[in-house]
Amino acid sequence: MGICIGLISGTSLDAVDAAACEFADDATWRRLIATRAHPYPGALRAELLALQRHPDTPITLRDLARLDAAIGDCFAEAAATLMRDLGLNGAEVVAIGSHGQTVFHDPLSLHTTTQLGDPNRIAARTGVRTVADLRRADMAHGGHGAPLMPAFHHALFADERTQVVANIGGIANITVLPGAGSGHVFGFDTGPGNALLDDWAQHHLGSPYDRDGAWAASGTLDPALLQRGLADPYFGWPAPKSTGRDYFNLDWLNARDADLAARATADVQRTLLELTVESLASAIETHAPSAAGLLVCGGGARNRFLMERLTARLPRLQVSDTGAHGLDPDWVEAAGFAWLAQRTVLGLSGNLPAVTGAARPVVLGGIYPA
């Protein structure tokens, strides 16, 4: 099958992640070849964060088109630079799978989602056919269009034991991988991952994130604030379910506590970290009580204190990051969109109805020729 490149910028908007991956002729995974993190220009990132947090903010068609083009250019440059680093031309890459940048996601009332980043620009700049708009086919068949990574998690990490893969980006989601012959793969968004932690750090430290969770570790847990957070109805909704930064943001946090401004900021950060840990752990205990291991990927895998708290909260599970199982936790999602691209090119389905709630498996996305 050859080389495919996956492109993703998630809810944390850290950068456009590009991963070049090799697949066998039968489309099975072989290896991660090379990666690149391509940062957004600061002003563009700030504008996108504002849209994520306040999706009902009016925006003109001109501005929407401008953002679509600007994001497409950033994605194209990420892929083109990675190709130059590897000495690859367009004919040597089978496909690029571009997730785009989510700016709106409503699977419940409008049953649609919006990812910006013009794939025509990516195809034109790289000379590689580009697979994009990877969520809406699932939604057209009644699904949430998310999460999409469980199928990839199953392809890479499934073994004889029941395991859980936790992707902790801005939003956290889990994939339950049942042991051989013991059921279907399923998963869902458990709630906030890094989104609230990053927003609180940006607001009070002027930093985009809390390195290693050191600031959270310096604070004291506020049990009452934690319980008010966990009382949100989202945590009790049945799967399939998905969410985003438009739901879990600082406005959501302020609504949990009228006296938030009077609290020590490090104590709030400590409590927000525990909210991520507890919502993840509770979901795992409820939906995968027989799991033997937890594999963590995404930015949360680099948060030392968060990993310590997950390990302590789930003492029965062997907790590690996906690096111990062959794929660096920073690059699982980008690699997953390379995997989805090659499946689309081959006419193979990419969704799991048991995860998204779709009526049937479908081929995801559209193909934009070079």
Rank of each mutant, 00 (worst) to 15 (best):
N173H: 03
A224I: 14
I5N: 00
D138P: 02
G293V: 11
N89C: 14
P107S: 08
G365M: 04
F248H: 03
F186N: 09
L250P: 10
A43Q: 12
Q115G: 01
G179E: 10
A359C: 02
P238L: 11
H153N: 05
D210H: 06
R53A: 15
L44H: 10
S282K: 09
H153D: 10
A180M: 10
I122N: 07
C21H: 01
I284C: 07
I5E: 00
S290K: 09
L253A: 08
P240S: 05
I168M: 13
A266W: 10
Q227C: 09
G299S: 13
G244P: 04
L275P: 02
G170N: 00
T243P: 05
K241S: 07
L310P: 08
A50T: 14
V319Q: 04
G72M: 12
N254G: 15
Q115N: 03
D138W: 05
A70Q: 04
G6D: 06
V363M: 01
T265G: 10
P223C: 01
A370P: 07
D17Y: 08
S12H: 03
F235A: 09
A335Q: 06
D56I: 13
A140I: 09
M1R: 07
D25F: 02
T175W: 08
I367P: 06
P361Q: 05
H204E: 13
D257Q: 13
G179C: 14
L134G: 07
L275K: 06
T311E: 02
R129Y: 05
D73T: 13
E22A: 13
A281I: 10
Q269V: 04
G206Y: 06
Q318V: 13
L13D: 04
P223N: 06
L48R: 09
T130Q: 02
T190V: 13
D198H: 14
A19D: 03
L314A: 08
G183Q: 01
S282F: 13
D212V: 01
I3V: 11
R66S: 11
M139Y: 09
D26T: 08
G142N: 03
T356D: 02
A80E: 09
A214Q: 04
N194W: 01
R62G: 12
Y247A: 08
T113G: 02
R31P: 05
E278K: 13
T162M: 10
I71K: 12
V185C: 10
R313Q: 07
I71P: 05
C4K: 00
N167C: 06
A262L: 15
Y234I: 01
R45W: 03
I174H: 06
D25C: 06
S207W: 09
H154C: 14
T356Y: 01
D321H: 14
L225I: 02
M307G: 14
I5S: 00
